[in-house]
């Protein structure tokens, strides 16, 4: 089922900006969550990580940004390189300084800080470069005009969409080269999801920021991403160019909800799934 990257139209020549090779992640020393995940992200690309709840999308992102340790998780095998350098042992702070920043699932805004203060925390690593920070703030407001209106509201009292914008804007303030975006559509109205993805796309195009996206909303993700990986219980079960994935029969059935040959009962679907082992 794997489609060779060249076939998928990905630039083979340049080495990828980020490559994750066969990583295994264990939580609390006992719970094996990732069982050998490999993926690569080209510079300037938008790559989507798809899969159901608990497939290991967030864990993959957190093992790249090294936020795993906060949750007592650990990468026990494999390697992660960014720009040709091993980054497995770096702290989140060092990673943000190198340009890799994560926007966490569920926004995680600082509720008691105002929207603007939230954005400014994103510029923490830039210290006292006042002019740069002021410029970046204006840039974020240009992408998210809504945030400018709400700049002095406490973030905890803003809507889910505004919080998602704050979280993305905050990451942008660090002047990232790569954003790890975890489930931006969570709990948002379809229209808003579309709007946020549009902005993410324009950030990718105008700022040249590489995006690795974890999403459950396969439909939207595959429209904006150029390449996708599908995770199932801690393994990559399928990968390919977004178009190819979108037209794949299995993806259509399991992730896009477009059943091919008539409607089956839920029980049949479960059986079918159990029998069929994708890849391995």
């Amino acid at each position: 089922m794997t489609l060779a990257p060249s076939q998928a139209g990905q630039a083979e020549t340049a080495p990828p900006l980020l490559s994750v090779t066969n990583i295994e992640v264990i939580y609390n020393h006992v719970i094996l969550v990732l069982k050998g995940v490999s993926l690569s992200v080209p510079e300037g690309g938008i790559v989507a990580l798809l899969g159901a709840n608990g497939a290991g999308k967030s864990t993959t992102l957190k093992s790249i940004s090294n936020l795993l340790r906060v949750e007592r998780g650990e990468v026990t095998k494999g390697s992660i390189t960014y720009g040709g350098e091993r980054i497995d042992q770096l702290t989140p702070n060092e990673l943000v300084r190198r340009g890799v920043i994560q926007v966490m699932e569920g926004r995680h805004c600082f509720g008691h800080l105002t929207v603007e203060e939230n954005l400014l925390t994103g510029a923490f690593i830039h210290g006292g470069k006042r002019r740069q920070i002021a410029e970046d703030l204006e840039k974020v407001y240009a992408y998210f005009p809504r945030l400018k209106e709400r700049r002095s509201s406490q973030a905890g009292y803003t809507s889910g969409g505004e919080q998602q914008m704050t979280a993305i804007g905050r990451a942008l303030m660090s002047r990232p080269k790569m954003i790890l975006l975890d489930e931006p559509s969570m709990g948002l109205a379809p229209q808003l999801v579309e709007q946020i993805f549009e902005i993410v796309k324009s950030i990718n195009e105008q700022e040249g920021v590489t995006i690795l996206l974890a999403e459950q909303n396969t439909n939207v993700a595959l429209r904006y991403a150029r390449y996708g990986y599908i995770l199932e219980s801690g393994r990559v079960v399928m990968e390919g160019a977004a178009d190819t994935l979108r037209n794949n029969e299995d993806v259509k059935e399991f992730y896009l909800g477009l059943g091919g040959e008539g409607r089956r009962s839920f029980r049949d679907v479960k059986q079918y799934r159990r029998r069929k082992r994708w890849l391995g």
Partner: peptide, 23 residues
């Protein structure tokens, strides 16, 4: 101040503060 803001950010959410590069 920048550090004061970071302090309040950490108070609100450790993990998010780490994610934006506050040590």
């Amino acid at each position: 101040t920048r550090v004061g803001r970071a302090l309040r950010a950490v108070a609100d959410d450790h993990q998010a503060a780490q994610s934006v590069g506050i040590p």
